[in-house]
């Protein structure tokens, strides 16, 4: 019985944690400065990773779409197929997993260390709401950074796709870019990007939850960092299934 109750109560605890984060997001005071600092850490400093990954993924996707579309003699559709794949799923998921790796580990370790060195208590002792100051700011920063990073990855992905294409066919960037947008609709572009806000929430909440509940000293910090990445990635991938279903329901056009 305990075997069942312990994980359930932990899950309930985590859900309450997430719910509290949502409530606190809208309740002043807003820790704007700290949010901006986190946005710098999460967003700006993830840019090189995301941009390079997007570019590389664009090249690889382009090579794959080329080899499949060539069989049907539909090379003209490569940019559009690439863009569709990027914008709907590949971009959001790749960015989600990369951020889960980089930022999830960062949050888990940083908050874990703050926990075991009593810095979180110290914040409370100087009359700062540590949940707001540490968790809400990180969550908001992550939710803001994700769509931006995804957009960046989508665009560098297109540039990568173009680079791969132009090496073969010499297509101009402008023609490629226009062609890329010839098929995607708002129903592909907007929900695909917006859903990464949910990814950002999941990553930040998971890592923060595991971070602030770190036990067992330095070893516990490492453990929290690892668990944050694993848990955030799994939650993100499973949540994506639900989100895709939801998007198809809300935007039937995107299912076509």
């Amino acid at each position: 019985m305990d075997l069942l109750i312990a994980p359930l109560s932990r899950a309930g605890h985590a859900v309450a944690f997430a719910g509290r984060a949502i409530l606190e997001m809208f309740r002043p005071p807003f820790e704007l400065k700290e949010t901006a600092r986190q946005l710098y850490e999460v967003g700006w400093r993830s840019l090189p990773l995301i941009a390079v990954s997007g570019f590389a993924v664009g090249i690889v996707l382009s090579m794959h779409t080329r080899s499949s579309l060539e069989r049907f003699g539909a090379e003209a559709l490569i940019p559009a197929a690439l863009m569709l794949a990027l914008v709907r799923e590949t971009g959001p998921l790749i960015v989600g997993l990369l951020v889960a790796g980089r930022v999830g580990a960062g949050f888990g370790a940083e908050l874990g260390a703050m926990k075991v060195t009593e810095q979180i208590d110290a914040l409370e002792a100087v009359a700062v709401d540590s949940f707001k100051f540490l968790v809400v700011t990180r969550t908001v920063a992550c939710m803001l950074a994700m769509p931006v990073l995804t957009t960046v990855a989508n665009f560098t992905g297109i540039v990568g796709g173009w680079a791969a294409e132009t090496a073969i066919s010499g297509m101009s960037f402008e023609a490629y870019f226009r062609s890329a947008f010839s098929v995607v609709g708002f129903a592909d572009y907007i929900p695909g990007t917006i859903k990464t806000i949910v990814f950002g929430f999941i990553i930040a909440i998971t890592a923060s939850y595991l971070g602030v509940h770190t036990r067992g000293g330095t070893q516990g910090v490492g453990y929290s960092a690892t668990r944050s990445v694993v848990a955030a990635s799994i939650l993100l991938i499973t949540a994506n299934v639900v989100l895709v279903r939801l998007i198809f329901f809300l935007f039937p056009e995107s299912a076509g």
Binding site: L39, G43, W44, V87, L144, V148, T151, F177
Partner: peptide
């Protein structure tokens, strides 16, 4: 702070470019 502004602003701009293209 300026970099954060550039990050968010640039992201929005890029997103808007996509919206505009469509």
């Amino acid at each position: 702070l300026a970099l954060v502004g550039a990050f968010v602003g640039g992201g929005l701009l890029l997103f808007a470019v996509g919206l505009f293209m469509i």
